[in-house]
Design a protein around this nucleic acid. Sequence first.
DNA 1: CAAGATACGTCAACATGACTGACGTATCTC
DNA 2: GAGATACGTCAGTCATGTTGACGTATCTTG
Lengths: 170, 170
Amino acid sequence: MTDVSRPAASPGASPLFLREDEVRRGIELLYFGYTRLTNAIDQELAKQGLGRAHHRALYFIARQPDLTVGELLKLLAITKQSLGRVLKELQDRQFILTSPGMVDRRQKLLRLTEKGALLEAELFRHLREKLSSAYVSAGQESVTGFWHVLEGLIPESDRKMVFDLRGDKA
Amino acid sequence: MTDVSRPAASPGASPLFLREDEVRRGIELLYFGYTRLTNAIDQELAKQGLGRAHHRALYFIARQPDLTVGELLKLLAITKQSLGRVLKELQDRQFILTSPGMVDRRQKLLRLTEKGALLEAELFRHLREKLSSAYVSAGQESVTGFWHVLEGLIPESDRKMVFDLRGDKA
DNA sequence: CAAGATACGTCAACATGACTGACGTATCTC
DNA sequence: GAGATACGTCAGTCATGTTGACGTATCTTG
């Protein structure tokens, strides 16, 4: 009962992995882990009267300033009508601003306002706390494993898009 | 382009982890990994005219036969009204059946019918394929790391509930 | 340069799955 | 017997997704 460091579970993958129970274990941890992480910002979002959808847009715009609407649509994998509503609200409430593309003027480039950046930073602070603490309690070797398994879940066709979020385009 | 084994990303967590970029990396992989895994059963669910909510209920009932409504409510963390609709549909369409609790007759015990078990197995097959292949491509050491990080995301107060899914109660 | 493709926006109707609030019944516990 | 508990249900609302149809500005190409 005093073993706070790590609960007595998941002692390690057995040599014969792919066993049903290990797959179910992964499904459950992914489900609970993901929902609990997102829960970390629910309160903050509610304060602002925003939802998850707003956060996702905010997040990717923060991650990749001057993202185009089309790129954001691909990342979120929703319809332009759904995204339209979200962007309109974010713009009306001055969390984001847009500018026409310089190379292609049909494009609309998305960027956070100062107000938007402050909000995103505050939301990120909560996510970072949660995830950092999970990283620390699991240990560094675990973190790379965590990444590799998740990468394996992303279809080949989507990987470039995801990996390109990592500091390119600037 | 022929490097199918693992895309040139996430070469390993740096010694100074907790850096912003590594946290963002985790957030993104978790988001894309989770959504892509759940996408794996969308088609199958659509065939049956069922939604994600139905699957989650089906999954946990499969995982823990004779689960009570109250326990399922805690796992799903939704309101009884929401769950009520889902369970009613599953029962009407004979995917699940219920029986009064033997020790406490106020309780309703949930169990899959044969038809329900077949459906759950089919859905699980798709999830297993996806997740197994991610496990294999990441390697066994990665799988335990994957688990440990996710466990760290689950609040202490919820862990018992999650770990108890692992083959107890039978 | 005209024709067509592309990037984006928008109107309208609808589905899903959550929520709150209120109330009812059977059963258990003290 | 009184109150708590497990479950059900009616009614209304909200957030977020969907399809389908059109409109406009701009880029690309034969």
